[in-house]
């Protein structure tokens, strides 16, 4: 019943939007300035918006697909008992082990969401699942190596690793509920356990569901990220960065709206030459943990209440570590 109402409301909104768009087109057509549309398309802002949107998607989709396939394989091939046997049961120990999983499956930020969802569903301690979710995009060989390439400084690489490690374990332990159902959003999965199907078909069916749901939210998130990236000049945030506290805060906001891949953000951070090192490190951790395109995918995979708790705690933890760190690291 609730679903039906939601559908009806959404239909009304869409019909309303459609009517407005139709009116605008009719108006342009009547005023005889239809050729202006061509100028709008050629506008550099539209070009930039399209390029950035497509770039995030072309970069993100293969990783979501790989992540979905890994997730499907975990579900079909590895039994719950096996997982429970090999994975540490304690909150703390599971969070530590899971934060190093990035060395086993170095998937990018988009790919780790379906995998972590599946790991939690399979019954690994929730603290482990959360710390895997936060750590993998940063604590993996590719990201750490690209950070070294960008900065040529082991201090920055170690700083990035350490802050990400502390943050993911801390948040894993802090917000993990006992019951996994408080985290996982149930979405309709079709005949996942149909015994008549071959293992490959079952893996593919699981992957399909993951890809369609998370891909959809990646498109919405990437659209927002490219709107921000196109229209907000970076200087606005960089000029208020002179103050230590403001510089941490503005780097957190910048990383959220830019939605860069964790393999690339170090090269962008390196261009903020006048910022303290700690602000750059926070920029490189906040992005892979809570960029705007990821936030949408989080809402697709997990329950809203949990995602809100996760985002608030990541934001505050990074802010606190950033402030303390900027006084230690000079």
């Amino acid at each position: 019943m609730k679903e039906l109402n939601k559908e009806r409301n959404l239909k009304k909104v869409l019909i309303f939007l459609g009517a407005i768009i139709a009116l605008v087109i009719l108006n342009i057509w009547q005023s005889g300035s239809f050729y202006k549309l061509n100028q709008i398309i050629k506008n550099p802002k539209i070009q930039v918006f399209t390029i950035i949107l497509l770039a995030i998607l072309i970069e993100g989709f293969p990783f979501i697909l790989i992540g979905s396939l890994i997730s499907g394989s975990i579900d079909v091939l590895i039994s719950e008992e096996k997982f429970k046997k090999f994975f540490p049961k304690g909150k703390f120990s599971s969070a530590i082990v899971a934060s190093f999983f990035g060395f086993l499956f170095p998937v990018c930020s988009c790919g780790e969401i379906p995998v972590s969802r599946r790991l939690i569903k399979k019954g690994i301690p929730t603290a482990g699942g959360i710390s895997y979710l936060l750590a993998t995009a940063i604590i993996n060989p590719i990201t750490l190596f690209s950070t070294y390439l960008a900065f040529s400084s082991l201090k920055i690489v170690f700083g990035r690793f350490l802050v990400a490690f502390i943050c993911s374990i801390f948040i894993g332990i802090l917000i993990a509920p006992k019951d996994k159902n408080e985290i996982l959003k149930e979405y309709e999965e079709e005949h996942p356990d149909d015994e008549n199907l071959s293992k490959i078909d079952r893996i593919l069916f699981h992957s399909e569901d993951d890809f369609i749901i998370m891909g959809k939210y990646l498109i919405i998130g990437a659209t927002l990220a490219s709107i921000f990236s196109t229209f907000i000049p970076r200087e606005v945030l960089l000029t208020i960065s002179k103050n230590k506290i403001l510089s941490i805060l503005s780097m957190q906001i910048l990383s959220i709206i830019l939605s860069l891949c964790s393999y690339a953000d170090a090269f962008v951070a390196n261009t903020f030459t006048y910022l303290p090192d700690m602000s750059k490190i926070i920029f490189m951790i906040s992005g892979p943990m809570m960029s705007i395109s990821l936030i949408f995918v989080y809402f697709a995979a997990f329950k809203g209440k949990f995602v809100k708790k996760l985002l608030i705690s990541v934001f505050l933890t990074l802010f606190t570590i950033g402030i303390i760190g900027s006084f230690i690291m000079r």
């Binding site: 770039a55 970069e59 690209s146 939605s259 690339a264 090269f267």
Partner: peptide, 11 residues
């Protein structure tokens, strides 16, 4: 423009 991964990170 110098890009590391994609056009979103172009410097």
């Amino acid at each position: 423009f110098l890009i590391t991964c994609c056009a979103a990170d172009a410097t």
